[in-house]
Deep mutational scan, measured.
Amino acid sequence: CHSECLGNCSQPDDPTKCVACRNFYLDGRCVETCPPPYYHFQDWRCVNFSFCQDLHHKCKNSRRQGCHQYVIHNNKCIPECPSGYTMNSSNLLCTPCLGPCPKVCHLLEGEKTIDSVTSAQELRGCTVINGSLIINIRGGNNLAAELEANLGLIEEISGYLKIRRSYALVSLSFFRKLRLIRGETLEIGNYSFYALDNQNLRQLWDWSKHNLTITQGKLFFHYNPKLCLSEIHKMEEVSGTKGRQERNDIALKTNGDQASCENELLKFSYIRTSFDKILLRWEPYWPPDFRDLLGFMLFYKEAPYQNVTEFDGQDACGSNSWTVVDIDPPLRSNDPKSQNHPGWLMRGLKPWTQYAIFVKTLVTFSDERRTYGAKSDIIYVQTDATNPSVPLDPISVSNSSSQIILKWKPPSDPNGNITHYLVFWERQAEDSELFELDYCLKGLKLPSRTWSPPFESEDSQKHNQSEYEDSAGECCSCPKTDSQILKELEESSFRKTFEDYLHNVVFVPRKT
């Protein structure tokens, strides 16, 4: 048989008469490798580009789960590009990614509803959504962080984005990388972005840091009482949809009607710091009717980097990364020049730590249904340095008659930039024990000054392991946590139920 035959053949030295091919099969003959313009397919066939392209389009058009959109890589027609490569849609070739590779997620039936953290986790790592997304989240724990972890990498949506009755959302900033909504599939009414009845939605994105392009379709905003109209108009300008909307697409009466839409800028007039305090004062603000001013709200939190936005980490279910302080308005003076500047002394802060701070007014709604208010920009203030805590785990070892090696770990709280350490030492008198000992005694162990690591005695271990207080009263049991108490109650309830079950099964009433 021919060298490319495997198993047997019907005619000697003829690659077209093989029972099976050793390498690849091409047009009725066995070959060692697939010549151009053919590609290896499933490690035994040679196919042309049209064959591989037909497989790709067949799966793409069917949208069946589990099928493969075949691509070409290293002269092979394979189910998908290997790690580190992405497909070129024009020629199906796998090309190296520039940075992290995109991950295209194809949605069944063309859309997916995100109504819980669990459903959001199914899209973790996706960068391109081939379909439409509907966000409908009523509640949950730590929602802002969970949504950002699972949806934060999405850069492109081919269909539309719909935010509907998501009472738990305060902001859409968890879509931190969303840059493009194509609108290839539109919501009824030709809408590519749809926001309806979101009672706590206050911000779409921080438009000073976020760009969003909507290729096709219109915007729809109705019944978002805490979303200011200025935020919607800003989205029109940034996304390129200005002029597409009709009169009733953006409701003037049901958007922002319960919001404090600040239209003035508060400026800080005085800032002073110490290692654990920050004193702030800002310019006074009074609405047209000074009785509408209820006070100020001061927001602050630790910020290692200057990239904080107002609604980071917030949701309507209680999660809030900001510390909020309510401040009463100052006494009002008739003389504008003698107006008191409101302020606040922030206490209990960490030394040498940068804080993000902003302040906003708290006002009631005027009778004319106009909203007044003022808010400052987010500023960054760093507390002063102070003395560091003591170095940890000092170790001293003498390696000769004239040297001592000293080692330690950095302090747990540096409280500033540590530039150097101060080492103090003092000579001590020799131990009298060394002169009084009889060095001729056998088995004498000389006193040693070398360091030995501390260890816990058996008594201390027994005390720590004991669940009861000892007789001397030195140790006591740790208080039980809520989960331990709940577990004990469940076990007790189970024992009672099981005992009742045994009584009912074992003891049967005697027939009379």
Score class of each variant (00 low, 15 high):
C105R: 00
C105T: 00
C105G: 01
H106P: 10
E109L: 11
G110L: 13
E111V: 06
K112L: 13
K112V: 08
T113G: 07
I114K: 00
I114V: 07
I114L: 08
S116P: 02
S116H: 05
V117C: 05
T118D: 04
T118W: 12
A120D: 01
L123D: 00
L123N: 02
R124F: 08
R124L: 11
G125Q: 13
G125F: 03
C126R: 01
C126Y: 04
V128M: 02
V128S: 10
N130Y: 04
G131C: 02
G131M: 02
S132F: 01
L133D: 01
I134S: 08
I134A: 10
I135T: 06
I135L: 06
I135A: 03
N136I: 04
R138Q: 12
R138A: 15
G139Q: 05
N141R: 11
N142S: 14
N142Y: 06
L143I: 11
A144C: 01
E146W: 10
E146L: 03
E148S: 04
E148C: 04
A149L: 09
A149I: 05
A149E: 15
N150P: 15
N150V: 02
L151G: 00
L151V: 14
G152T: 08
L153D: 10
I154Y: 01
I154R: 00
E155M: 04
E156A: 08
I157A: 00
S158I: 12
G159L: 00
L161F: 07
L161P: 01
K162R: 14
I163C: 04
I163Q: 01
R164L: 09
R165F: 05
R165L: 03
Y167Q: 14
A168K: 01
L169G: 04
S171Q: 11
L172D: 00
S173V: 11
S173C: 11
S173Q: 08
S173T: 09
S173R: 08
F175C: 03
F175T: 02
K177G: 07
K177F: 12
R179N: 12
L180Q: 12
R182S: 13
G183T: 02
G183H: 03
G183Y: 01
E184R: 10
L186F: 06
L186Q: 04
E187G: 06
I188F: 07
I188W: 05
G189F: 04
Y191D: 09
Y191A: 12
S192F: 01
S192R: 00
A195C: 12
N198D: 02
Q199C: 01
Q199E: 14
N200L: 09
N200F: 06
L204P: 03
W205F: 11
K209A: 07
K209L: 09
H210V: 11
N211V: 09
L212M: 03
I214S: 09
I214A: 05
T215R: 12
T215F: 07
T215K: 10
Q216V: 11
G217K: 03
K218T: 15
L219F: 13
Y223G: 06
Y223Q: 07
Y223R: 08
N224K: 00
N224P: 00
P225V: 13
P225G: 05
K226E: 04
L227I: 08
L229S: 05
L229M: 03
L229V: 15
I232G: 01
I232M: 10
H233N: 02
H233T: 11
E236F: 05
E236S: 09
E236N: 11
E237G: 10
S239A: 13
S239I: 11
T241R: 09
Q245H: 04
R247D: 07
R247P: 07
R247Y: 06
R247T: 07
R247N: 07
N248E: 15
N248W: 08
L252H: 11
K253E: 09
K253V: 12
T254Y: 07
T254F: 09
Q258G: 01
A259R: 04
A259W: 14
S260P: 12
S260V: 07
C261M: 02
C261A: 15
N263V: 06
N263T: 10
L265S: 10
L266N: 02
K267L: 10
F268V: 07
S269T: 09
S269M: 08
I271M: 05
T273D: 03
F275S: 10
F275N: 07
D276R: 03
K277L: 11
K277C: 12
I278H: 00
W282I: 04
W282A: 14
E283M: 09
P284F: 11
P287N: 04
P287E: 06
D289E: 02
D289A: 02
R291P: 01
F296N: 02
M297Q: 10
M297P: 01
K301C: 01
K301M: 11
E302G: 01
E302L: 05
A303W: 03
A303V: 14
P304R: 12
Y305N: 13
Y305K: 02
Q306K: 15
V308N: 15
E310F: 06
F311V: 03
G313S: 12
G313F: 12
D315Y: 11
A316V: 12
C317G: 03
G318V: 08
S319L: 09
S321R: 10
S321T: 09
W322R: 00
W322K: 00
W322I: 05
T323R: 15
V324G: 07
V325W: 10
D326G: 03
D326P: 01
D326I: 01
I327G: 03
I327P: 02
I327Y: 14
P329Q: 14
L331M: 07
S333Q: 11
S333I: 08
S333W: 11
N334Q: 14
D335V: 13
D335H: 05
D335C: 11
P336S: 11
S338E: 12
Q339V: 08
Q339M: 09
N340W: 10
N340L: 09
N340A: 14
N340Y: 12
H341Y: 09
H341Q: 13
P342F: 10
G343K: 14
G343T: 05
W344A: 15
W344T: 14
L345Y: 13
M346P: 01
L349A: 13
L349F: 02
P351M: 11
T353L: 08
Q354I: 14
Q354E: 08
Q354R: 04
F358G: 04
V359H: 01
K360I: 04
K360C: 12
T361H: 06
T361Y: 14
L362I: 13
V363H: 04
T364K: 00
S366L: 04
D367L: 14
D367S: 08
E368P: 08
R369M: 11
R369T: 11
T371A: 10
T371Q: 12
K375T: 14
K375L: 15
S376N: 00
D377T: 09
I379K: 15
Y380M: 06
V381C: 15
Q382N: 07
Q382C: 03
Q382K: 09
T383H: 01
N387R: 08
N387G: 09
P388Y: 01
P388S: 03
S389H: 13
S389A: 13
V390D: 04
L392A: 03
D393T: 11
D393V: 12
D393L: 15
D393G: 06
I395P: 01
S396I: 08
S398N: 02
N399H: 12
S400M: 10
S401N: 14
S401E: 06
S402P: 10
S402M: 05
S402R: 05
S402H: 11
Q403I: 11
Q403H: 11
I405G: 09
K407S: 03
W408S: 10
K409W: 10
P410T: 09
P411H: 00
